[in-house]
């Protein structure tokens, strides 16, 4: 290793001369790619506090200082309060308030509909959102001021007020973008491939994979599309009867070519029960079903088992399904 840079050679410090200081203290023996890597590593290690993370607190430090004073027979002292330090305190207090204020604004607002229940929310811009069971939406407290972004895990029907700023739903790995319209999104993080399905009742809506707006599919009223992470682009628009788009709002239970696993999970959410599928292979079998108002879950379970050659038994909190 050569010492190309003289500032790291042993320079003797002589009294009166300024000792050589370097900042940042990375050695200069790295160049090009190596240098960039090392700088990256240096940065990554920044908050890797050495173990243990614990340090004596301010109070423990004061107690220790008192004990040192006693050992040295020093008179008692107090932390010096000068005007300057008082200003520093006030500045610190203001900063803490400001931080909490901003922090508060940065904490997202979360609204959930638990299993077996539904919820209706009105967003600050007047947009109405109906949440199906087991659904969570999250949006900034600044919603409507800076942007109209919202994230969704589950299924919801949106009636978006038109506005200058686009209304954007981040649904797992898909993005749905609109200006003013009514549509249903189903995007459950436990569905295979993070599939998102969008049905448009009024106006028009764009659907694209997150981070890839070039693959945008635009849906007019009466159309639907879907995307999951095994697809390059969303499915070209297909027609769907408007009254079937968000059947859950009228207590309907509608499935079109969906895997049994997803259907059982939807039953769990709708009725707040547990459905245990003991036959793993069956989870990916597809099924189409339509109930106008099933009332009880057992009716659906019974039918599914009949069609798929499965059997079921009741458990304390739901059903167990096996071959």
């Amino acid at each position: 290793m050569t010492t190309r840079n003289s500032q790291y050679s042993d320079k003797k410090q002589t009294p009166g001369s300024d000792p050589v200081r370097h900042h940042p203290p990375l050695p200069d023996d790295f160049e090009g790619e190596e240098r960039r890597d090392v700088e990256d590593i240096w940065k990554k290690c920044a908050d890797l506090q050495p173990h243990p993370v614990r340090k004596p607190t301010r109070k423990e430090t004061e107690i220790a200082l008192k004990s040192v004073h006693r050992r040295l027979d020093m008179p008692k002292t107090r932390p010096v309060t000068t005007i300057r330090s008082r200003i520093a305190w006030m500045a610190a207090a203001a900063l803490i308030l400001l931080t909490f204020g901003i922090g508060y604004l940065l904490i997202p607002q979360t609204v959930s509909a638990p299993y077996g229940e539904r919820a209706t929310v009105e967003l600050p811009d007047g947009t109405g959102v109906e949440l199906n069971s087991g659904t969570t939406i999250r949006y900034s407290r600044l919603f409507g001021i800076r942007n109209r972004n919202i994230s969704l895990d589950g299924e919801a029907f949106f009636t978006v007020e038109s506005g200058e700023r686009p209304f954007i739903v981040n649904a797992n790995r898909s993005v749905v973008e609109v200006t003013g319209t009514a549509f249903n999104i189903r995007s459950r993080s436990d569905d295979p491939g993070f599939e998102t399905r969008v049905h448009v009742a009024e106006g028009s809506v764009s659907l694209y994979p997150a981070g890839d707006p070039g693959r945008k599919v635009t849906l007019e009223a009466g159309k639907w599309s879907r995307w999951n992470n095994s697809m390059v682009a969303p499915m070209p628009p297909e027609t769907e009867a408007v009254d079937r788009m968000a059947g859950w709002r009228d207590n309907r239970f509608i499935f079109r070519n969906e895997p049994l696993g997803s259907i059982f999970r939807e039953i769990e959410r709708r009725f707040d029960i547990r459905v245990q599928l003991m036959e793993e292979n069956a989870a990916s079998e597809l099924l189409t079903a339509h109930y106008s108002d099933p009332g009880q879950p057992e009716k659906i379970i019974e039918d599914i088992c009949h069609v798929k050659g499965l059997r079921y038994s009741k458990t304390a909190n739901g059903f167990r399904i096996y071959r």
Binding site: R54, K55, P56, T77, P79
Partner: peptide, 22 residues
């Protein structure tokens, strides 16, 4: 100057304890 001593103590004691603990 005892105040200088106290100031140094307050600034360095926590870091040094952590260092020693390692």
């Amino acid at each position: 100057d005892q105040r200088a001593f106290d100031e140094l103590f307050r600034a360095m004691y926590p870091r040094l304890v952590r260092f020693a603990f390692k």
